[in-house]
Write a protein that binds this DNA or RNA. Structure first.
Length: 557
RNA sequence: GGUCCAGUAGCUCAGCUGGAUAGAGCAACAGCCUUCUAAGCUGUAGGUCCUAGGUUCGAGUCCUAGCUGGAUCACCA
């Protein structure tokens, strides 16, 4: 097929009043005459294929092949920031596959925005208070006999999570017992003694009863130590961490102001609500009758705090699509309260990760644990790598580093190549692949490039006439040409998947090139040098693209 | 029940603002390592793009209805 670009002329027919063929013909002739880079054109069935002169690609090649930051923009540190909240864990259970998607997406979108020239602030909001935390604490008090991460050798978040599950088990047993005594299910759910105890514990926590407060601090510290390990393994970082225990009261004042202004209303029992029925939504509780705040209240306060602390041009919340309604309500309430920045809030709503058996439920233990999955990925990378035996001269530590890099490359790419908006299926029975459209395939392409360049270990340049470029070489240059605009496009859509798909195609094309042409063995020095330069440039782009996905590339594998 | 989202090859997914014969990977089958890393390359096979209408030169893409699956409509977060 001839032509580098295709113009579809059908939309112009109304203006040209000519047949598609004649319209295409005349546009083609005009372009060939007036555009210096246009070499020629073809008309097929109303499609105008334009061919660009190889010189154009050659000069683009010469201008950029040495640029280590090819396609990337630098952020202006004085510019307004894009704030991105992600992770947002609860401190009552360990991280699972769903959290992995959230964390990887949040981190990658941050990198993507940075690469597109934005000034990014990454924040985490730890949900460290509330009834669910008290449930773990209560179950620990009742069952643990003083067990700690040290005494059990168990990771802190796992230990606490076990007691959250334990609570749920006991709670359900009590409900059954009450139903057996003639209560309705609804009554039983509200009256189970263990739940009443947890609610009492929450009141004690808010009153900062020392015994409860101290236990809370202790158990949260265990969880944070556990999270730290998982975050580190995932390579996830934040610029700032907010704790709900420190911000949960913030929204209160705003809500009371809103009440005074008549935007909100009070019910007979004293609770405060927003009426959104005119906007097609329901009424939303903002303060309980006893004055305590709910999730929405906290989010209002936290948002206000952030917009005061920073000059924010865009605030992204990476949160699952199960909370779409929550964010619709949040934005609407903030608008009604008169905050013009409400329009700058953007919910990056990603689809749930599902298992063949359905949705993951922490309480029911049907989750793919983050640490387990990471460990399994590393084991798989190790056994594959050992079979191939290409790293035999590496030290054990060097090898382990490569296994880890490949394992995380596979996991991260697997999660990020899917469009964020869409749900995704994960089958634990089938381990994540290392071949085909995968992270390791791209990493492998990079190591091939590095291997060639190590063997040369000298200068190279592009000093050749354009007519000597092979089609495949021009195709690679064209692919690289797309990188910078792609980053901008992907950034506006918050889509690391577009980057993943691009790097895969680039790596694939390079592998074809690598297979079909010789580089070091090429006899013509100019061609050899040009191919080294092209390889190096592809390598740079793979590395930069993978960095946006939070994936490292190894020198060898 | 109201609202929202999704349905593309056996499986997992691409398919940009409507454009040429709908693409990859995995799985299956057949080839390619005395040659720069075979975690690679090449080929074969695999499709009623959920269904039915509509919009127009043209629909996987837009509209309407239906079917199926999911989410949500909490004094949980």
């Amino acid at each position: 097929m001839k032509g580098d670009y295709t113009v579809n002329v059908f939309p112009f027919l109304k203006i040209s009043k000519l047949s598609p063929e004649k319209t295409a013909e005349s546009i083609g002739q005009y372009l060939a005459k007036n555009m210096e880079h246009v070499a020629g054109f073809d008309v097929i069935k109303g499609f105008l294929n334009i061919e660009i002169k190889p010189d154009y690609w050659l000069s683009f090649f010469q201008n950029h092949y040495q640029n280590k930051y090819f396609g990337l923009l630098k952020a202006d540190k004085t510019a307004p920031v894009t704030m991105i909240e992600y992770s947002s864990p609860n401190t009552n259970k360990p991280l699972h596959l769903g959290h992995i998607r959230n964390n990887l997406l949040g981190f990658s979108v941050s990198e993507l925005l940075k690469a597109s020239g934005k000034n990014v602030v990454k924040v985490n909001l730890v949900n460290d208070r509330g009834i669910h935390i008290c449930k773990s604490m209560l179950a620990w008090q009742k069952n643990a006999k003083g067990a700690t991460p040290e005494s059990t050798g168990k990771k802190g978040d796992k230990l606490v999570g076990d007691y959250y599950v334990q609570f749920d088990k006991d709670y359900k047993a009590q409900i059954q017992q009450l139903i057996g005594q003639g209560k309705t299910a609804e009554e039983a759910e509200k009256q189970a003694p263990i739940l009443l105890e947890a609610q009492e514990m929450l009141r004690q926590w808010e009153a900062k009863v020392p015994e409860v407060y101290q236990l809370w601090q202790t158990m949260n510290a265990w969880v944070y130590a556990g999270f730290e390990i998982t975050y580190k393994a995932l390579g996830i970082t934040f610029d700032k961490t907010y704790y709900e225990s420190e911000t949960y009261l913030l929204g209160k004042k705003i809500v009371l102001d809103g009440l005074e202004k008549g935007v909100l209303f009070r019910k007979e029992d004293g609770s405060i609500w927003a009426d959104l029925t005119e906007d097609g939504l329901d009424q939303k509780l903002l303060l309980r009758a006893d004055g305590t705040s709910v999730y929405m209240t906290q989010d209002i306060g936290t948002a206000q705090q952030r917009f005061t602390e920073f000059t924010i041009e865009d605030h992204i919340y990476v949160v699952g699509n199960e909370q779409n309604y929550h964010f619709d309500v949040l934005k609407l309430i903030l608008q009604k309260l008169g905050y013009d920045w409400a329009s700058r809030i953007h919910h990056l709503s990603y689809g749930m990760v599902e298992l063949p058996s359905g949705k993951m439920k922490s309480r029911e233990g049907t989750v793919v644990d983050a640490d387990d999955l990471i460990a399994e990925m590393i084991d798989n990378a190790r056994s594959t790598s050992e079979q191939l035996g290409k790293l035999d001269d590496y030290t054990k530590q060097e090898k382990e580093k490569v296994y880890y890099t490949i394992a995380m490359g596979a996991l991260k790419y697997y999660m990020l190549k899917v469009d964020p908006k869409k749900g995704m299926m994960f089958n634990p029975a089938e381990s994540i692949d290392f071949n085909g459209n995968t992270g390791p395939f791209i990493q492998y392409t990079y190591t091939r490039i590095r291997s060639v360049l190590r063997k040369w270990n000298s200068e190279f340049s592009v000093n050749i006439s354009a007519s000597r470029l092979q089609d495949k070489e021009i195709e690679l240059i064209q692919k690289l040409y797309d990188f910078a605009p792609l980053i901008q496009d992907a950034a506006t859509q918050y889509s690391p998947a577009m980057i993943a798909s691009y790097i895969y195609e680039l790596a694939k094309e390079y592998n074809q090139f690598y297979h079909d042409y010789q580089i070091l063995k090429e006899e013509d020095d100019h061609i050899k040098s040009m191919r080294l330069a092209l390889s190096n440039w592809v390598g740079i782009t793979i590395k930069n693209g993978m960095k946006i996905l939070g994936i490292e590339v190894p020198e060898r594998m």
